[in-house]
C-alpha cells in the first residue's frame, strides 16, 4: 500500500495533466490551474524539508565532539538563522538587514566562487586542449575563435575574428545545440511516460 498509493496518484495526476492539454474546457482548465497552485505549495514544503535536513545534519556536528568540523557547522547554522530571522521578521526591501546581507555577503561570495572557476577552467584547458585528432582540432579552433572574438584583442588582430565568433555561435554551434535540445526533449518525454506508467519508480526510494 505504501508504494501502490503513490504510484496510483502519480498515474492519475500525470495522465490528467497530459490529457488536459488537449481539452481546453473551462472546468478542466480551472482544475489544471488549481492543481498547479497546490503543487507549488507542496514543492515549497519540500524545499523546507531539504533545509531542515541540512540543519539537522549540522546541528549534530555542532553539538558533537569533532572540534575540527564544529566551528564550520556553527557558521552554517548562524548563516541560516540570521538570514531567516532578517528575511521573515524585518522585511526584505532596500535598507533592511536581509538586503544588506544579500548585497555584501551572498552576492559578492557567489560571484567570487564563480570567478574562482576561471583558474580551474584555464588549468583544465591547458591539460585537455591537445590537438590529438581532427575532432579535437575543431574543438580547439572553435574555442580560440570564440574567446578571441569576445575581447578587444580579437578585433585588433583582425576585424574578421569577432564576425567569425558570432558566426560559429549562431550557425554550427546553435544547430548542434538544437540537435541536443531535441534529443533532451525526446529523453524527457520517454522518462515522463515511464514515471506516469509506474515503470520508473526510483523516486519512491528503496529497491
Amino acid at each position: 500500500m505504501h508504494r501502490k498509493l503513490p504510484l496510483l496518484i502519480c498515474f492519475a495526476l500525470g495522465t490528467f495533466m497530459l490529457v488536459q492539454f488537449f481539452v481546453p474546457h473551462k472546468a478542466s482548465t480551472a482544475l489544471y490551474e488549481a492543481i498547479l497552485d497546490w503543487v507549488q505549495i507542496i514543492y515549497a514544503f519540500s524545499l523546507l524539508v531539504g533545509a531542515m535536513m541540512l540543519i539537522k545534519h549540522h546541528a549534530v556536528i555542532a553539538s558533537g565532539r569533532d572540534a575540527k568540523e564544529r566551528p564550520f557547522s556553527i557558521l552554517i547554522l548562524m548563516g541560516i538563522t540570521v538570514m531567516l530571522v532578517a528575511g521573515l521578521f524585518f522585511g526584505r526591501g532596500e535598507g533592511t538587514v536581509f538586503h544588506w546581507l544579500f548585497q555584501n555577503v551572498q552576492a559578492p561570495m557567489q560571484a567570487t566562487m564563480f570567478s574562482l572557476l576561471s583558474f580551474f577552467v584555464a588549468s583544465a584547458a591547458y591539460r585537455g586542449f591537445r590537438a590529438r585528432n581532427s575532432q579535437a582540432i575543431f574543438l580547439l579552433v572553435a574555442a580560440i575563435i570564440v574567446m578571441l572574438g569576445r575581447i578587444p584583442v580579437g578585433e585588433i588582430i583582425s576585424s574578421y575574428i569577432p564576425k567569425a565568433a558570432d558566426w560559429i555561435l549562431n550557425v554550427p554551434s546553435m544547430a548542434a545545440r538544437r540537435g541536443i535540445y531535441i534529443g533532451i526533449a525526446l529523453g524527457t518525454i520517454a522518462t515522463s511516460l515511464r514515471v506516469i506508467l509506474g515503470i520508473e519508480r526510483t523516486y519512491l526510494g528503496g529497491k
Binding site: A44, L48, F72, L75, I76, M78, G79, M83, V105, M109
Partner: peptide, 22 residues
C-alpha cells in the same frame, strides 16, 4: 569558513524567499 557562511546564508535566503513569496 567563507564556504560554510555562503552555504548557510544561501539556504537562509531561499527559505525566507520561499516562505514570503510562495
Amino acid at each position: 569558513a567563507a564556504e560554510h557562511i555562503l552555504l548557510g546564508v544561501s539556504v537562509g535566503y531561499f527559505v525566507a524567499v520561499t516562505v514570503s513569496t510562495t
